[in-house]
Write a protein that binds this DNA or RNA. Structure first.
Length: 432
RNA sequence: GCAGACAUAGCCCAGUUGGUAGAGCGUCUGACUGUUAAUCAGAGGGUCACAGGUUCGAGUCCUGUUGUCUGCGCCA
């Protein structure tokens, strides 16, 4: 007899098979019981009738199966329109493997704090299952997209000697009696990679010790940071929008069930696969905000309300280009049309989700970079290697960073990014 | 870092001028042959966050402590 998974059930209609499962819920009558089953590959229902099994098995189904009890079922796969999945299994026999008593998570009515305290178990529920499948697909699609476009995956170090942008707080670790820090960006290392391999991308965890308490922040999150040699900002933006559209199209094609499970309709995502995305300048954005009655002036960075307002003017992601130098990173080159500004763009997601990508051209001028490093108090000892990238065969290059969980929270319509990573790390949450 | 809320059963929450601690869900027992948050009947379940104070009497009023959530800032 063949052992299959729930996801393979449609190919085994009429066959008697074995499946290793967990119970999510059950309903029973005097002579029939409905067992809601999951096995990691999917969810469906098992039916057990008193007349089809011996009495001990039927009694076991009624009394010994509790939420998350693991067992092996033997039965015949049937197509049935009364089942939500479309298929179900008529059980002839079952063998309990692992008992489960008083499972803490029910079908409804839990607060977020309780659920996060039980994250190791909550992951078994439907919504986290769907969110983790979507996350996995996005990472796979990322690798496929960049591979197709000639990029090499390039892993930046996580332990670093100091801070790339010098401003944010870093997690300090003891590195054999020397101070080291957990990386807050792989970008500078990515630039070294681009000079070696042309086009690279990093994909890995990033750490920020900022005491942020918002729906858009975690202390540990994942970034995807492509870096491209011989590339100006305009070309980088084209890659960015193609990448975002590619991720969304792949989700539409490969994860429609998971999207529906988390409340995101496939139809609502389709417009975001149509390119190009609109582009406006920072100055135009300021004008739009002022006309909209918001209290901003040139030189201000945008907060959440401003980002939402701007994104609401378009029904697509929108690039905001060329911000003032004062609110951007030291390595961004001067905008030739306005010396107060730098060549960069942020991509704002629609529907109130704010910035999902920050990117820019990188200055490749040795004098400019060395003076900026000095202005920002970044030492030769720690950043001399970054100078070298300009000293030996410097070329125009650009790159960007996408926050994986921010992207995911947008496409899955979550109001907080914490459910888009298996074990979120936040200001007040380090366990489980 | 700033501001505002909250803390009562395993969970989600009520609790009136201060007067014996409540419901729903889950759990357990029973009924029911197509249930989808099943339904019906019954049972069990509490150091009211912690520490003081006022009072004949505090879940309720006062003070302090701790924890959590939400929004803002910072950013992805």
């Amino acid at each position: 007899m063949e052992t299959i998974t729930i996801s393979q059930a449609p190919q085994h209609v009429g066959e008697t098979v074995k499946i290793g499962v967990w119970l999510t819920d059950k309903r029973s009558s005097g002579k029939i019981a409905f067992l809601q089953l999951r096995d990691g590959s999917g969810f469906f229902q098992g039916i057990i009738r008193k007349n089809d099994v011996d009495e001990a098995t039927f009694e076991a189904a009624k009394h010994d199966l509790h939420p998350e009890t693991s067992f092996v079922v033997t039965g015949e796969i049937a197509e049935d329109k009364r089942s939500k999945f479309g298929y179900e299994i008529h059980i002839n026999d079952l063998e309990i493997v692992g008992q489960s008593d008083e499972y803490p998570i029910g079908n409804k009515e839990h607060g977020i704090d309780f659920l996060l305290d039980h994250r190791h178990l909550w992951l078994r529920s439907r919504k986290p299952w769907a969110l983790m499948r979507i996350r996995s697909q996005v990472k796979l699609s990322t690798m496929e997209f960049f591979d197709k476009h000639g990029f090499t995956q390039f892993d930046a170090p996580i332990l670093t000697s100091s801070a790339p942008e010098g401003t944010t707080e870093l997690f300090n670790v003891d590195y054999f009696d020397e101070d080291a820090y957990l990386s807050q960006s792989g970008q500078l290392y990515g630039e070294a990679g681009a000079m070696a391999l042309g086009r690279i991308y990093t994909m890995g965890p990033t750490f920020r010790a900022e005491k942020s308490k918002t729906r858009r922040h975690m202390t540990e999150f994942w970034m995807i940071e492509p870096e491209m040699a011989w590339c100006h900002e305009e070309e980088s933006e084209e890659i960015q929008e193609q990448y975002v559209a590619y991720l969304i199209q792949d989700l539409i094609d490969k994860c429609p069930t998971e999207l529906e499970m988390v409340g995101r309709s496939v139809e609502s995502l389709k417009p975001f696969t149509e390119l190009p995305y609109p582009r406006i300048t920072y100055k135009e954005a300021i004008e739009m905000l002022q006309k909209g009655g918001m209290d901003v002036k040139y030189g201000d960075d945008f907060g959440a309300p401003e980002e939402t307002f701007l994104a609401d003017q378009f029904n697509k992601p929108v690039f905001i280009k060329n911000y003032p130098r004062s609110i951007k990173a030291f390595y961004m080159p001067t905008d030739p049309e306005d010396a107060q500004q730098v060549i960069c763009a942020d991509l704002l997601a629609p529907e109130g989700y704010g910035e999902i990508i920050g990117g820019s051209e990188r200055s490749y001028d040795y004098e400019y970079i060395t003076s900026k490093l000095e202005e920002n108090g970044l030492s030769k000892e720690d950043y001399g290697w970054y100078d070298d990238l300009r000293k030996y065969g410097s070329v125009p290059h650009s790159g960007f960073g996408m926050g994986l969980e921010r992207f995911l929270s947008w496409v899955t319509l979550q109001d907080h990014i914490r459910e888009n990573i298996p074990f979120p790390r936040m200001l007040n949450r380090l366990r489980p």
